[in-house]
Amino acid sequence: MSIQHFRVALIPFFAAFCLPVFAHPETLVKVKDAEDQLGARVGYIELDLNSGKILESFRPEERFPMMSTFKVLLCGAVLSRVDAGQEQLGRRIHYSQNDLVEYSPVTEKHLTDGMTVRELCSAAITMSDNTAANLLLTTIGGPKELTAFLHNMGDHVTRLDRWEPELNEAIPNDERDTTMPAAMATTLRKLLTGELLTLASRQQLIDWMEADKVAGPLLRSALPAGWFIADKSGAGERGSRGIIAALGPDGKPSRIVVIYTTGSQATMDERNRQIAEIGASLIKHW
């Protein structure tokens, strides 16, 4: 067993022997301040990774656009098919120029040779490549099948209805392509620590998230040296922004954090800054 596999296998073990965790309302004060600064709703939840206990939450059962955070769930569904012998990570998928959609920095470079399922998941999570996500959605049967996968996990809230990039439209009061912070946090925890996926697939999923290259201005910008984070960000229309993450000190994750916002007129930089400040408060009061 590799060191990384050992780390993920012992996530519940280490967490069980940690000192009790206590909620700190100071972080919620910052979440509410972010709402004021952005002029928009902000949803927040913080779960203990081992027990699933909610440590703090704000608007945990209000719907927010998922945006690209759905790509972690998508690759979880792909990995479940791999575990069941219905898919192979090494299978190569070929596609054409007509398949390319807006923001496809990886797939646009491989029109000639195609990409493997493993490479597509890596591109979808680490670079948020939209064509990679659409190609992977095709392998599982489309958005409705991802929703069905989530329902089978016990998540009857999260739903995907459309493809990239239309799913980022974020129309107010439109339930399409949305989740709730509580539902997303619980589902992410199941994917990373539950028995739904094999140990190898859980490790692969967290490795992809740990290698995320496009979430630097968010929670990662607030992390002290030595902290662990595996995350996936999302951005959408109407001032929408979000991030889902597993993080913790001492090089291992111990909490799940989900943050979503929508309806702001603020710039992307300002949305990023507010999420980073929430992260800084979380870490300060850990």
Rank of each mutant, 00 (worst) to 15 (best):
P25E: 15
P25C: 10
E26H: 15
T27Q: 05
L28K: 15
L28A: 10
L28Y: 10
K30A: 15
V31R: 00
K32W: 10
A34N: 04
E35T: 03
L38T: 09
G39P: 03
A40H: 03
V42H: 03
Y44W: 03
I45T: 09
I45E: 03
I45S: 07
E46F: 08
E46W: 04
L47T: 08
D48T: 04
L49G: 06
N50I: 12
N50H: 14
S51W: 05
G52R: 06
K53C: 07
I54P: 08
I54Y: 08
L55T: 08
E56K: 10
S57E: 12
S57K: 11
F64G: 01
F64Q: 01
M67C: 10
S68C: 04
T69M: 04
K71I: 01
L73P: 11
L74R: 00
C75Q: 02
G76R: 00
G76Y: 05
V78H: 04
S80V: 13
R81Q: 10
D83E: 11
D83A: 06
A84M: 13
A84Y: 10
G85F: 08
G85T: 07
Q86R: 15
Q86E: 14
E87R: 04
Q88G: 11
L89M: 12
G90E: 15
G90Y: 11
R91H: 10
R91N: 09
R91E: 06
H94S: 11
H94P: 08
H94C: 08
Y95I: 10
Q97G: 14
D99F: 07
D99V: 09
D99S: 10
L100V: 13
L100C: 06
Y103G: 06
Y103L: 05
Y103V: 06
S104F: 04
E108D: 13
L111Y: 13
L111V: 14
T112M: 14
T112N: 13
G114Y: 04
G114M: 01
G114N: 05
M115D: 04
T116H: 03
V117M: 11
R118Y: 12
E119F: 01
L120E: 01
C121A: 07
C121F: 00
T126Y: 00
T126P: 01
M127I: 11
M127K: 09
S128E: 00
D129K: 01
T131V: 06
A132C: 01
N134S: 03
L136I: 10
L136P: 00
I140Y: 08
G142R: 03
P143E: 05
E145T: 11
T147C: 09
A148L: 15
A148E: 12
F149L: 10
H151V: 12
N152H: 14
M153D: 01
M153Y: 08
G154L: 05
D155K: 01
D155Y: 02
H156Y: 15
V157L: 10
L160H: 07
L160N: 06
W163E: 09
P165Y: 05
E166F: 13
E169F: 10
A170N: 09
A170C: 14
I171W: 15
I171Y: 15
P172L: 12
P172V: 12
E175M: 14
T178N: 03
T178L: 01
T178Q: 04
M180P: 04
M180Q: 14
A182N: 12
A182E: 12
A182Y: 15
A183I: 10
M184F: 09
A185K: 00
A185Y: 00
T187P: 01
L188A: 08
L188F: 11
L191W: 05
G194R: 09
L197K: 07
A200R: 15
A200H: 12
A200T: 14
A200I: 11
A200S: 13
S201R: 07
S201H: 09
S201C: 08
R202K: 13
R202G: 08
Q203A: 10
L205S: 00
D207P: 01
W208C: 03
E210Q: 14
E210S: 08
E210V: 14
A211G: 15
A211L: 14
D212S: 07
K213S: 10
K213E: 08
A215N: 06
G216T: 08
G216K: 08
L219Y: 04
L219N: 01
R220Q: 05
A222S: 11
L223A: 09
L223C: 10
P224H: 06
W227E: 01
F228S: 07
F228I: 08
I229A: 04
I229S: 00
D231I: 05
K232F: 02
E237I: 09
E237A: 14
E237F: 12
R238N: 15
R238H: 15
G239M: 03
R241P: 05
R241H: 06
I243F: 06
I244A: 08
L247V: 12
D250W: 12
G251M: 13
K252F: 12
K252C: 12
P253K: 09
S254H: 12
I256N: 02
V258D: 03
Y260R: 02
Y260I: 08
T261Q: 08
G263S: 08
G263H: 06
S264V: 06
S264H: 05
A266R: 14
M268E: 07
M268R: 07
R271K: 12
R271E: 06
N272R: 03
N272T: 09
R273T: 13
G279S: 09
G279K: 03
G279D: 02
A280G: 13
S281L: 10
S281Y: 11
I283H: 05
H285W: 14
W286V: 02
W286Q: 04
